[in-house]
């Protein structure tokens, strides 16, 4: 069956614009990751701080083992989402690889054994870059601002005693992940 209608130039343009608008990147799903990692990051930093200050536990950084289940949840969620999605946009792929790159940087930093107390501030700096870029790709301002705020907090964290850097990181994650994450969720 051929569609019989002959198209005018204006109609052609209207179809093109309308369809391109329709296919624009979706924000759905991203809020899940920001909320999950927002809470993991906030609790991890706060917990790490509290363990250093108020306990004599030998390895206070063990609190970061909470990232292991968070990773598993993220991977499972990502897998389930990709099975459900009916369309794959360039921005989805770009964001997925950006965070994959961030994870590689984070793993190198953590397991190099050379950064130690500088780890939270440094991770904050590269997480800022990834968040900032994600915000730009999705054209979602709260994430752009959140990501930029990470750089300010990171610079602050590098200027205080490392243990207080953890507190600054916790605040940064509330500002950069949790607030945009909740705004995102409430607008969908």
């Amino acid at each position: 069956m051929e569609d019989p209608k002959s198209l005018s130039n204006e109609e052609s343009l209207r179809i093109i614009t309308q369809m391109i608008q329709t296919a624009k990147g979706n924000l759905k799903g991203s809020s899940f990751y920001f909320l999950l990692w927002g809470w993991v990051g906030t609790l991890g930093n706060l917990g790490h701080f509290l363990l250093i200050q108020f306990s004599d536990i030998e390895y206070p950084s063990a609190i970061w083992l909470i990232t292991v289940p968070a990773w598993i949840i993220s991977l499972l969620y990502g897998y389930r989402q990709s099975a459900k999605e009916k369309v794959r946009t360039y921005s989805d792929t770009l964001i997925a690889w950006l965070w994959m790159g961030f994870s590689v940087c984070a793993v190198i930093l953590i397991f190099s054994g050379r950064f130690n107390e500088l780890i939270p501030a440094t991770i904050l700096m590269i997480a800022g870059l990834a968040t900032f870029m994600t915000g730009l790709i999705l054209k979602y301002k709260p994430l752009v601002y959140g990501g930029s705020s990470f750089w300010i907090f990171s610079a602050m964290a590098l200027h205080v005693e490392p243990v207080y850097g953890l507190l600054i990181s916790a605040v940064a994650i509330v500002v950069g992940y949790l607030i945009p994450g909740y705004i995102l969720r409430s607008t969908i």
């Binding site: 569609d3 179809i15 093109i16 309308q18 391109i20 296919a23 009916k86 369309v87 794959r88 989805d92």
Partner: peptide, 28 residues
Amino acid sequence: LHSQLRLAIMSLLISVQSAEFVFIKEKT
């Protein structure tokens, strides 16, 4: 391309990496 539906399909596909049949059906 100068047909309503084919132009719509192509305009959708030019803006995404790939799309399933049901997605194209829903949008067009």
